[in-house]
Amino acid sequence: MGNVVRRVLGIIREELDEDRAGESGESSESQMFNSAGTNSGLHRPARPLPKTAGQALTHETQALLGESNAPPTKTSMLSLLSHSPYGEVSHVAQVIAIPQSLLLQEGRSTGATNAADDLKSEVVEGIDELLDELRQADDQIATYALEQIHSREIILTNSTTRTTQKFLLKAASRRNLTVILVESFPNSHRSAYEILTGRPKGNSRSGEQMNRALTAAGVTVIFAADSIVFGLMTRVTKVILDANIIFGSGSSVTLVGSKLIARAAKLHRSPVLVLGGVYKISPDYPFNVNSLMENGEPSAEVSCMDDYLPGEIEVGKPLFDHIPADLVDLYITNVGSYAPATLYSVVNDHYRAEDTDLDSV
């Protein structure tokens, strides 16, 4: 949520900068025009007109030019336009410039309103583009599956999200795969055991839906417990994880149990690929990693009424793990693949420096 707020603030700031740049360009052009007009003699002081031109002007016009003592004469528009020598254009321009300046002053408020409406429409258009990016992020990430996964590979993952499912299905459309799905105790193990026993209870869970989709695509799916991940890693060719948060430093926050998998993969030299849209990449730096960790309700796993539990004991149920940058080989986003050390460039392209700390905005 914080990343999306920063993206929207960046869109507003970008449109404001473009609007100010356009206004400064227009003001500089108007100054150049005014200076050119002054040099050409359009704003020279009024001087007495020849007799022929004075007969062609009305009494009000002569008063504006400083010749109110001249007697009024009757004239027509045809005679006024017929007497226009080159030397008399400057005086006529002075007369016409007066109502134009008044019109410009009266139209300032209308121009400001139109500029605000234009700015609002541009910001709304930018937010619509951001929404399209969020909707298409999973499909765009899946397009890189064929570049990263080859035939007869054994993929290990503990994620049952839609991002991981689309990524594996895209690879399975051209490749022969075997997927090892870790149960991820204590968050997703129930659905894994229900599928293994063939007796799912209640509504279909994400793990069951993923298993059905992959098996329908011809993928061999194997469920495994967290305790045997280290032993299975000798046969695994790639590890795929789904990130909840990705930091510019190269670290990430993923589902609990991912750190165990990433450490085992590093020891066995198995590449670790982390999936995540650009909207998950955060400009924050995790100074305090423990502040990012969330705990769930442990009562579903351990009952508080159990007699064997001693008094005044705290039971935690972590939901996420923090994976350092040295345990990740590649991040796959909807705009390309990046090494952990190059994520700062993505942060600089999508966020403004003044929006990093939301408390100061």
Score class of each variant (00 low, 15 high):
residue 269 R to H: 14
residue 208 E to D: 03
residue 330 L to K: 01
residue 195 I to N: 13
residue 213 A to K: 09
residue 23 E to V: 15
residue 5 V to W: 06
residue 346 V to N: 08
residue 25 G to S: 13
residue 358 L to G: 05
residue 328 V to P: 00
residue 160 T to A: 08
residue 31 Q to V: 12
residue 107 G to D: 13
residue 61 T to L: 09
residue 353 A to R: 15
residue 270 S to P: 00
residue 11 I to Q: 04
residue 145 A to P: 02
residue 254 T to C: 15
residue 64 L to V: 13
residue 177 L to D: 04
residue 240 I to K: 10
residue 165 Q to R: 11
residue 201 K to V: 14
residue 358 L to H: 01
residue 99 P to M: 07
residue 120 K to V: 09
residue 296 G to H: 06
residue 345 S to T: 14
residue 94 Q to M: 13
residue 59 H to G: 02
residue 38 T to G: 12
residue 239 V to I: 10
residue 182 V to N: 01
residue 56 A to V: 01
residue 329 D to E: 10
residue 88 E to F: 02
residue 19 D to C: 13
residue 352 R to G: 12
residue 205 R to T: 03
residue 112 A to C: 11
residue 196 L to A: 12
residue 196 L to I: 15
residue 326 D to L: 07
residue 27 S to F: 08
residue 61 T to H: 10
residue 114 N to Y: 06
residue 220 T to K: 11
residue 330 L to W: 00
residue 74 K to W: 00
residue 159 S to G: 00
residue 185 F to T: 12
residue 184 S to R: 14
residue 199 R to C: 11
residue 354 E to V: 09
residue 21 A to Q: 09
residue 117 D to V: 14
residue 277 G to V: 09
residue 246 I to K: 03
residue 290 N to G: 02
residue 9 L to K: 05
residue 283 P to L: 11
residue 50 P to H: 03
residue 350 H to V: 10
residue 58 T to S: 08
residue 90 S to E: 05
residue 13 R to D: 09
residue 103 L to R: 13
residue 281 I to F: 06
residue 146 L to C: 07
residue 80 L to H: 08
residue 97 A to W: 04
residue 268 H to I: 12
residue 332 I to K: 06
residue 326 D to T: 07
residue 172 A to I: 10
residue 142 A to K: 01
residue 32 M to V: 08
residue 282 S to V: 13
residue 27 S to K: 13
residue 239 V to C: 10
residue 319 L to A: 06
residue 1 M to Q: 08
residue 129 E to I: 05
residue 321 D to S: 04
residue 152 R to E: 15
residue 171 A to Q: 08
residue 334 N to Q: 05
residue 50 P to R: 06
residue 74 K to G: 07
residue 236 V to T: 08
residue 260 L to T: 06
residue 309 L to H: 07
residue 74 K to Y: 02
residue 14 E to L: 01
residue 36 A to F: 01
residue 41 G to H: 05
residue 115 A to Q: 15
residue 333 T to E: 06
